[in-house]
Amino acid sequence: MEYTKHGNSVEGYITFNLYFETFDYKEDSLLEQIKFTTAKELFNIMQPDFIEELKQENGAEQVEIHDITFRAKEGDTEAFITMYDNSGNYRISTNLDVSGLDSEYKETLLGIKDILGKKI
């Protein structure tokens, strides 16, 4: 699977954690996820001006980057790489062709039956 064809071909999501002060003066937070389709979009979203704008639009006390997820897809296979503050996560999902499993299962059972028949 080819994750990036060239430097600008990047797709994924960036998630921000928006923190709010409640009337009880306890911190409350909300996750805001934004999709990006190019490296330029990702870097623009990570700029202090954009983060400040996000903060003002939502009335948040503080905004932090929670995670960035990169996505790649080829055919039925999709891969995700998520980077958090101090850790990462990697996941692949794919559609499996199981159309032949029934016949393979039956052949295996018949083989076991033949072996048992010969031994008994």
Rank of each mutant, 00 (worst) to 15 (best):
E53R: 12
I14W: 04
Q56K: 15
K119A: 15
I112V: 08
G59N: 04
K106E: 10
K5Y: 07
T38Q: 03
K73H: 05
D67R: 02
D24L: 12
N86Y: 15
S103T: 15
Y13V: 14
L31E: 06
Q62I: 15
I14L: 03
G75S: 03
K35R: 07
Q47V: 11
D85F: 09
N58S: 03
L116S: 09
F16L: 04
S93L: 15
T94Q: 06
Y84Q: 01
A60C: 02
T94V: 07
T94Y: 07
N44Q: 13
K40S: 15
Q33N: 06
T77L: 07
A60G: 04
D28H: 09
F36S: 01
E104K: 15
N8S: 15
Q33S: 11
K35Y: 06
S9A: 09
K26C: 14
F36Y: 01
L96E: 08
T22Y: 04
I120Q: 14
L42S: 01
D102G: 11
E104A: 08
V63H: 02
S87D: 02
F23D: 08
E41N: 05
E41K: 05
P48S: 12
T108M: 12
F20W: 03
D67N: 08
K113W: 09
L31Y: 07
K106D: 11
L116V: 12
Y19D: 09
D114L: 14
I115E: 14
L30A: 13
I65G: 04
N44L: 09
E61Q: 12
F43M: 15
K40Y: 12
D102M: 10
G111L: 13
L116M: 11
E11K: 07
I34R: 01
E107P: 06
E57Q: 11
E32A: 07
D49E: 13
E32V: 10
D67L: 03
T77M: 06
Q62H: 11
M1L: 12
K55Y: 03
L18Q: 01
N44H: 13
R91K: 08
A79K: 04
N58K: 00
T22A: 05
S93D: 06
G59Y: 00
P48M: 10
N8G: 11
I92F: 00
T69M: 05
S93P: 06
T15G: 03
V98H: 10
V63F: 00
D76N: 12
E74F: 05
T69N: 02
L54C: 02
E53Q: 12
K40R: 09
T82D: 04
T37S: 12
I115H: 14
G59I: 00
R91N: 06
E64L: 02
H66Q: 05
L101E: 05
E53Y: 08
E2L: 08
E57C: 09
E2G: 07
H66P: 03
N89W: 08
M1A: 12
F23M: 14
A60M: 00
K55Q: 03
V63I: 00
D67S: 05
Y13G: 10
S9L: 09
S99Q: 02
H6V: 07
E53D: 14
F70P: 01
F23G: 12
I45L: 10
M83I: 10
K55D: 01
K35F: 04
Q33D: 10
